[in-house]
Design a protein around this nucleic acid. Structure first.
Lengths: 170, 170
DNA sequence: AGCTTATGTCAGTCTTGTTGACATTCCAAG
DNA sequence: CTTGGAATGTCAACAAGACTGACATAAGCT
């Protein structure tokens, strides 16, 4: 970097020159980082004959206790048959409880049991530890940029969901 | 932001306050962004009865023409049997060529055919378009942060691979 | 009463990961 | 120079988890 030119000015130019090469680096970074992102929970899940699908369900049930099946479907972006297979095993293993809705009795409201919360913590702790290390290494400015780019990469409707979850504006 | 205090100093404080909530936001952002990241190529691949595994193979063969199966294995982080199934279909569909090594005849060197390059472009173009939009929206400082955090999130050995590919220091 | 919505289930398919078994090729130690 | 082990790649069989399609049940709504 040339002395006397701020980073801002320097990178400002590259806006005009977003080369395929730079974009490809971003693409590969995304791929490799996602490997790392899922590696730790995957190891834990493998012991329990569960998979990522179970993790995702547990995560979002913990995040939004009492959520309905339909709601979860929209968040996860899978079919109900696919989700149902996962939920069935989690319920029969005693990690998740399903309660018939009081207002609308068609709905099932989902909660983690004590046992479910225990697993959720174990999985989150592993994933958060890596995220924490990465955030510390990169520094807060980088973290802000990281989140900005990720949000810009989401589908518009998914971004809305993400922001709702983030800000707790249910 | 307070005048006279650099961003570094300001956010430096928050290093001490990386709450579980902030980390969880990062985790969810990663999940939702990856959905978007793969969505466009997935649509193209679905038409062709290919999947993400094919895309990944095509991407890295294009990236490092003449690479060996073993090499590709290390990059993709899957078993050779898994990769082999994908390669077999790509070869028999005429997208990839496999040549026995001249020095070491155990090795197979992989190249894209003209047809393979065509599909590669189609997939890359879609994925790059989203990445480009996200980068433009977020701005160059954010992009730098994005890459920093992603690199910090990778497993150490994977990071080495990533940097090698990035810098072309084969 | 009849239409729609929310949920669950059964059956079948596809992709993509796994392990196990095996063939070929290379290399180095005896 | 031979032989045994390591490296590389292929084939087969299996499992997880995604998908579609069809259908059942219950509840809400017009």
């Amino acid at each position: 970097m040339v002395e006397g030119r701020s980073a801002q000015a320097y990178v400002g130019e590259s806006l005009l020159f977003l080369t395929d090469e730079q974009l490809r680096q971003g693409i590969e970074a995304m791929f490799f980082a996602y490997q790392g992102f899922t590696a730790d929970p995957d190891r834990i899940l493998a012991e329990l004959t569960y998979g990522r699908a179970h993790h995702r369900a547990i995560h979002f049930i913990n995040r939004a206790p009492g959520t309905t099946v339909n709601n979860l479907l929209a968040i996860l972006g899978v079919t109900k048959q696919s989700l149902n297979r996962v939920l069935r095993t989690l319920i029969s293993d005693g990690l998740v409880e399903s309660h018939v809705g009081t207002n609308d009795k068609r709905e099932r409201h989902l909660h983690l049991t004590e046992q479910g919360r225990t697993l959720e913590s174990r999985l989150s702790d592993a994933q958060r530890a890596r995220m924490r290390t990465a955030f510390r290494e990169a520094g807060p400015v980088a973290v802000a940029g990281f989140k900005q780019v990720l949000e810009a990469m989401m589908d518009a409707n998914v971004r809305r969901t993400h922001i709702q979850l983030r800000d707790g504006t249910t």
